[in-house]
Design a protein around this nucleic acid. Structure first.
Lengths: 110, 110
DNA sequence: CAATTTCATCGTAATATTGCAATAATAAGA
DNA sequence: TCTTATTATTGCAATATTACGATGAAATTG
């Protein structure tokens, strides 16, 4: 097959999985970290930061954008990218919640 | 191609990407949430919780285990699974850090 | 021991992802 | 306008993922 059976899961589960999937590639993690490292949104300059060809980077950026993890706005000849804080906030609270719940039932694990 | 160029990225980037990738499927998110919902580790019973065939679930469990997100210990005829708190802690702090850094440079985004 | 239960593995088909060369599209500058 | 710079899109080859039936392995039960 190769096609994920999204129908059988909740919206929320699919949403989190989609965001996690978008981050499930080192190049996309590297893009996120670069966007974070620089002190503002970045216009151009992303391709040179990565050890991948331009079409490949463009594709990764597209996936991050589709997953809602980054925003991009056209700035003349270039495109300004930056991280979407909301998406990160969602992921952060998701994992924070898991941590809290795990904390509560310590020692009950294997 | 289809093969990720992990060589060109840092260990940390690859590690985070690997964990995110493991969570990048709704079935695996569902498994994590089920493990969290029940008040202890689970022996057996996971297959019946998911709308997928047993070999498929087994495969998903294997991937979560390989990524270090869950632990499994054989308990006679069944296997007890539970979430690995350390892995969740790593992810949580990763996203928390991003949030903090984004907070610091508010308004500088697109 | 035979039957059953539980989980893993193998094999395979369908589909998705990754990566890049070639090419297009768009805007800025000469 | 012609050229250059920047990003997107297309098309393709290599590989990975997803899903499941069939089968296997190991412990439990009757």
């Amino acid at each position: 097959m190769g096609a994920t059976k999204t129908d059988h899961f909740t919206e929320k589960q699919n949403a989190i999985a989609a965001q996690a999937k978008a981050l499930g590639h080192p190049a996309r993690i590297a893009i996120m970290e670069y966007l974070m490292k620089v002190d503002s949104c970045i216009c151009g300059d992303i391709v040179n930061e990565l050890p991948l060809a331009q079409p490949t980077v463009s594709q990764h950026l597209k996936e991050l954008k589709n997953a809602g993890l980054i925003k991009g706005s056209i700035e003349g000849n270039t495109i300004c990218y930056c991280i979407d804080e909301k998406a990160i906030a969602i992921l952060q609270s998701y994992f924070a919640n898991i941590s809290i719940r795990l904390e509560k039932k310590k020692n009950k694990t294997c």
